[in-house]
Design a protein around this nucleic acid. Structure first.
Lengths: 211, 211
DNA sequence: GTACGGTTTAACCATATAGTTAAATAAATT
DNA sequence: AATTTATTTAACTATATGGTTAAACCGTAC
């Protein structure tokens, strides 16, 4: 994968349009399922413009994935630092992720496909981002256990529980709501969440790991 | 259960060889990323044979996905029925899923990609399978709540928590273990699971939803 | 207005890939 | 053994798709 970032100093309206179209298209169809022609068409731009402005399909994808997944890593550390107790920190951690996913609906499909592909297309920058997020969680769980608030857990499993729950729920609840195939008796039993998804997940995870 | 015999001894089971190769290839590269030629090559068979024996790419994929995802729905009801209390039933439910995923490593990537694609390629049979699994969980949670054992929950969220945790963990732990990019201090904090993944997830989920 | 540099475009190219066909081969049937 | 049927194969086709090119376009400085 060729990594090449576009010039963020000089904001380019055409490049912006292309990246937005690319983000949507990659999220919808995945890397292999996405056709460069469709990105160009959605962006309302000639294909050659796309190559002139950003580069080939790989570069396009690298930009999108960096833009989409980089956000979480950027903001999560300060968000967590604002809290005092391990409980509050974990809550802030989960709320931040849920909020980021809420604001970027492209995160779930893109992350799921990347995981399915063993991160084959992930640029190193993004991998480092992901690791930094995981490290923050490890810190929180560690502190909580040291203070006798949390039980002993396997951080990686807790991380997967948080991410898995949020991404799966976010991605599938619109389908569930729209689709006809879900029988009414199941739908009836399935109330809406009381609070936000982040609140609900934080509440469940805290119940699971608090002493 | 899926027969995982790679049978080069029996030259007659051409279709079997093809389906096994298809399953692996689709799991690895997804629908769009998979080339029919590669399946044929992996199966050690001419491409035309593949079309003669099974059909086009879509048919091939439908077969694979039915074979892979249908299993869970087949066995989970009897597995759960064997248990008495809601707690035991939920445990049996989670253990069965974890076990199925354990035996079929193709489940995580295929399900993740299907979710990412909003189930675009899912045949109706498979959708019905998935719904039937969800209905069993709803029944368990319902009974547990009626008996005052479980707190009130949103079944769909619990389902996503169980599936998300198991699939994400299963899919990413081999990467985590092998990859160099995970820093040692994170690895050090991250012990192996005490029991099986199913045990661990069941334990966490039960902690989360028990009164 | 015109010459120039950056930007966009239609048309084009090379290759990859899903799917087909007619012939060869193996298996079954008589 | 001869004939028919089922299965496999190499070669081929049509199309899709990532990527390129040379020309046109457009704003700006002179």
């Amino acid at each position: 994968m060729i990594k090449q970032q576009i010039n963020t100093e000089k904001p380019n309206k055409t490049a912006e349009k292309i990246l937005i179209a690319a983000r949507k298209t990659f999220a919808e169809y995945g890397y292999s399922g996405t056709h460069v022609d469709e990105i160009a068409q959605r962006a309302g731009v000639n294909k050659a413009t796309l190559y002139y402005q950003i580069g080939d399909k790989d570069t396009l994808y690298a930009n999108v994935i960096h833009q989409v997944l980089g956000n979480i890593a950027q903001g999560i550390a300060p968000a967590v630092a604002g809290a005092d107790s391990p409980e509050e920190k974990l809550k802030a951690y989960i709320l931040f992720i849920a909020d980021a996913v809420d604001k970027n609906p492209e995160i779930p499909p893109i992350m799921m496909r990347e995981m399915a592909a063993d991160g084959a297309h992930l640029p190193r920058v993004v991998v480092e981002d992901i690791v930094s997020v995981l490290k923050i969680l490890v810190g929180i769980l560690d502190e909580g256990r040291a203070k006798g608030i949390f039980i002993e857990t396997v951080p990686f499993l807790i991380h997967m529980m948080i991410m898995g729950t949020i991404l799966f729920y976010k991605k599938s609840s619109p389908i569930k709501d729209k689709q006809v195939w879900l029988p009414d008796d199941v739908k009836a039993r399935d109330k809406k969440l009381k609070g936000s998804l982040g609140d609900e997940v934080a509440w469940l995870v805290l119940r699971a790991i608090k002493k």
